[in-house]
């Protein structure tokens, strides 16, 4: 390990336990860490519990038990979760957009943070420009195409500058071009020090992006049977793309 990798994880959980109402033990994970600027790829068979794990990490679903390392002590996840709630955002496999305009969707999480109207409007506008969505700002988000909806959902999360993003099957249902765009985006977020957990049943789109790859098997995180080409370790991509260069993230117009 070189010097750049010894930094504290943003989030380290221990003893994550989840049992389904049916009595099936879904998760028995000893340890899981999320680091700034690193991407953890999580694979595993359908129905094995990947989505459930991400929902637990985001606080959407309560585990039966979990501990979190917090300032040198272990706290119950149920107690410490509040501290992380705003820093960890879960993105559904299929984005859910509110039945409102694109602008209202992106504004949603910025309410109640003590920002002035002008500050909120400015941040929203900047994010929409960044994502190449400005020309759709006034449209109802439900009327957009699938790819556009995914971009709105991502922008809606990124405008909150979370420390951790949990992406559930971000490549499913995308064509080749959108896949590589999403891959680029994950790279870009890494360079902006966002910690990520990505579930995927496909390895290819994640090659060269994932820093770590674990497989969920019988409730535990194990080394994967098939592995993905890791991101070169020891350094992080330094080049941060200028906003003008994010056209790859933009399917239509907006250039």
């Amino acid at each position: 390990m070189n010097g750049m990798d010894v930094d504290q994880p943003i989030l380290r959980l221990r003893d994550i336990r989840k049992t389904l109402p049916s009595g099936r033990r879904l998760l028995e994970i000893d340890e899981l860490s999320i680091h700034a600027g690193r991407c953890l790829l999580l694979t595993g068979a359908n129905g094995i519990g990947k989505t459930t794990l991400l929902k637990i990490l985001s606080g959407l679903e309560p585990p039966d038990h979990a501990l979190v390392d917090c300032d040198g002590t272990h706290l119950l996840w149920s107690v410490a979760r509040r501290r992380f709630r705003r820093e960890v955002i879960y993105l559904h496999q299929e984005a859910y957009l509110f039945d409102r305009s694109v602008t209202d969707n992106v504004t949603y999480g910025l309410r109640g943070l003590g920002l002035s109207r002008a500050q909120v409007a400015e941040r929203v506008q900047r994010s929409l420009e960044w994502a190449g969505l400005s020309h759709l700002a006034a449209r109802n988000a439900r009327e957009l195409s699938g790819g556009e909806q995914q971009r709105v959902a991502l922008t809606r999360a990124l405008v909150l500058t979370p420390q951790v993003l949990l992406l559930d099957e971000p490549f499913s249902g995308l064509d080749e071009e959108s896949r590589s765009r999403t891959g680029f985006l994950i790279q870009r977020l890494k360079s902006e020090r966002v910690g990520m957990v990505v579930t995927s049943h496909e390895l290819l789109p994640m090659s060269g992006i994932a820093d770590e790859h674990l497989e969920l098997h019988a409730g535990r995180l194990v080394p994967p049977t098939r592995s993905v080409q890791r991101a070169s370790t020891g350094h992080r991509p330094r080049e941060v793309m200028a906003p003008g260069e994010v056209a790859y993230f933009d399917t239509k117009g907006g250039r």
Partner: peptide, 22 residues
């Protein structure tokens, strides 16, 4: 997903409820 989206974007429970109802 309406409820989950509202919550993960930081809405308090009562606000998430109003969002779902809206």
């Amino acid at each position: 997903r309406a409820w989950e989206t509202a919550r993960t974007l930081g809405a308090a429970p009562w606000r998430a409820m109003l969002t779902v109802m809206t």
